[in-house]
Write a protein that binds this DNA or RNA. Sequence first.
DNA 1: GGAACCACGC
DNA 2: GACGTACGTGGTTCCA
Length: 875
Amino acid sequence: MNKLVLVDGNSIAYRAFFALPLLNNEKGVYTNAVYGFTTMLLKILEEEKPTHMMVAFDAGKTTFRHTTYKKYKGTRQKTPPELSEQLPFMRDLLKAFNIAHYELENYEADDIIGTLAKRASKDDWEVKIFSGDKDLLQLVTENVHVALTRKGITNVDTYDLAMVNEKYGITPVQIIDMKGLMGDASDNIPGVPGVGEKTALKLLKEFETVEGVYESLDKVSGKKLKEKLEANEEDAYMSKKLATIETNSPVEITFEDLVKMEPNYEEVVTLFKDLEFASLLDRIDGKVEVEKEEVKDIQVTVVDEVTEGLLVSPSAVVVEVLEENYHLGEIIGISIVNETGNYYLPTSIALKSNVFQEWAANTKKEKWLFDAKRAVVALGWGGISLKGVTFDMQIASYLIDPSASSHEMADISKRNHGVAIESDEVFYGKGKKRHIPEGSALAQHLARKAASINELKPKLEEQLKQNDQYELFEELEMPLSIVLGNMEMNGVSVDKEELEQMGEKLGEKLVSIEKEIHELAGVSFNINSPKQLGEILFEKLNLPAIKKTKTGYSTSADILEKLKDKHEVVEKILLYRQLGKLNSTYIEGLLKVIHKKSGKIHTIFNQSLTQTGRLSSTEPNLQNIPIRLEEGRKIRHAFIPEQKDAVILAADYSQIELRVLAHISKDENLINAFVNDLDIHTKTAMDVFHVKEEQVTSQMRRTAKAVNFGIVYGISDYGLSQNLGITRKEAQEFINRYFQSFPGVKDYMETIVEEAREKGYVTTMLKRRRYLPEITSRNFNLRSFAERTAMNTPIQGSAADIIKQAMVNMALEMEKRNLNSRLLLQVHDELIFDVKKDELEQMKKLVPEVMEKAVELVVPIKADVEFGDTWYDAK
DNA sequence: GGAACCACGC
DNA sequence: GACGTACGTGGTTCCA
């Protein structure tokens, strides 16, 4: 059977334009609408597989509707130039895809679509229409279906007769009558003033059509409504006419012109490349021989004996570890590129060579790497020391723009027009297909990587200098990567037996709670399945469903909290979840990652990931070990010093973000609070609630704390309302009162958003950068999010700068003093050490001192120190 | 293998 | 009034 797909081109383009941030390509051409439009096309081609297809566009400004009503579409804003400049690209793309497009003088895209849909359905074709405009629903019939864009662009709701009825309770043809009565603000169709969708639908259910309404006007209930209808009869009829899609427009194009042919993939590829649609290129990969970026063979010397002559300074070095977790992986090969040549060193030869080892450990021999920490740690496990690293390409790329689409070597190289490298995923394969290619291919791949580092180092350094970030790079992040490498390599000792015992107890408890839950529910089911749980709670037990998710009922903790007193099973489920989380993530999770060789836990800190400058921690994540609830906190009993002669020392910054805020905003009230060492949440409560200190209740303090939390994390009034369980309006009121009390903060928030709009980015105290292109978006959500980010990133990012500086300074100080204590972990505002008992007195003073002096603020910085036999006891 | 949901920390 | 709302990591389920 024939299947015709008709696309409302203008409507989809508009949707895409407003839904996506203003992307542009290297030539400065905006591409967001083209991008969205193209993803929609690809999706249609993949999912609908039409035999015939056409995209209709509006022709000009005036249409036959303007003769009926001059003001038709009169209030519509001009198409933004950023969008109109993209329309030609869409036509080019359609041509490349071999998809017909059509426009008709005096008619709108709707009319073309309506006309063709009617003709096709006469011949019993299947027709599907894509648009963002609800008006098109009037075309729905047995074999004509309409797909309307939902949020985003590629998400659509498909309407057939039943769907229209379900949504509106009327037939498709009555959509026209609905528009006639309610009008359409966006098209400037008047309708009957005071009649909205609800009233229109009510009237139509009773009287079927506009005509029906006026024939039985005396039967309409409501005096005012009747008066309004009476006074606007003409407008109602005219509006109906305007809203009617012309299904007999003089469309000359024939179905033969619409036959869907194979795309001209060569043209598509060329266009995608021009537009820089890398991800879309991937999607059509396989359909066509996409000529890959020319990967040229380079001259590589395979070294069978390492000599001093080839290890000159500086050298670009690649130490390849295929495993993502470099604590576990083997080094599969080493390459070196320097002014004497390009070399590949088979692992076994390099690691055994004294010449190599001495060169690696020599701080005076300069080395340039990509993700140096990976190489340092991987070599470290083999007992080889790598020193003298002066340039890390990954960190440089991250500092230049943390939001860059990827910090993979192949992508960075491409972005900066360096040596073409295959991505690791392509070269090694992924998933089950991953393997190490044979020797000479591997030598080529690794040599290209080293050549890329060698080539791009000056370019990236130049960019760092232009951004005034060279000091941040050289004095903070580069030394920090060494500190982090040592922390990871050193690892954290855990009491395995302690964990196992806790696990056993938890396991028993879980079994008994599970049984209780099944008994209370009257049926056995998987409590860990939100789907099954939802069905039990909200269907079988008939508890009120407060919130729904995309796929079913929400069973999240905050929802269950509200249902606690409705059924005793709820509390058990919460407990089951809590203990289950502890057992699977923390007990079993941590036991799984105890390293076979060291018996310790070695996390990996990611230094080039977060948009704010914070670190993250993986395999395992040691930055989210429980603390809030006592049961969870007990996990910390298992984190112990390496030797008996030591303790765990934890030092945390007190309110570092709010102190940073005081510093950058220069708000007098906030500065005074910290200078006088007040309890900041109590102080905030006093100001926000206009009460004296002794009148601050715990509820008031809790609210104030949530407001401060909101300021620090950049949450919205909605976020605050969720945290406090209040309305959005009340939350906004708290924020307003906060700003009244701290006017300097308000000024700062306004200034920083303005600055972000002008410059396109914000910076932290130590010049870390975050770009916020969406701050000029016309999409309210995107823009608001960017604005909150502009306010928040300098705060959170500067706090990250400060603790990083403290870590570097601390490492220097400990080395200078020849201390045997070790830094184990960083948890955003907290440093955890393994401290030898004979160094305890010294460290207790030194750690907070170094932390407090990391940078100088206009307010004092405060760090608190605790220690104990385990991490649990360091409180 | 990936999406969806949930939960932990700061 | 819409829009859908701090970041990051990881476990489990469920569907392809």
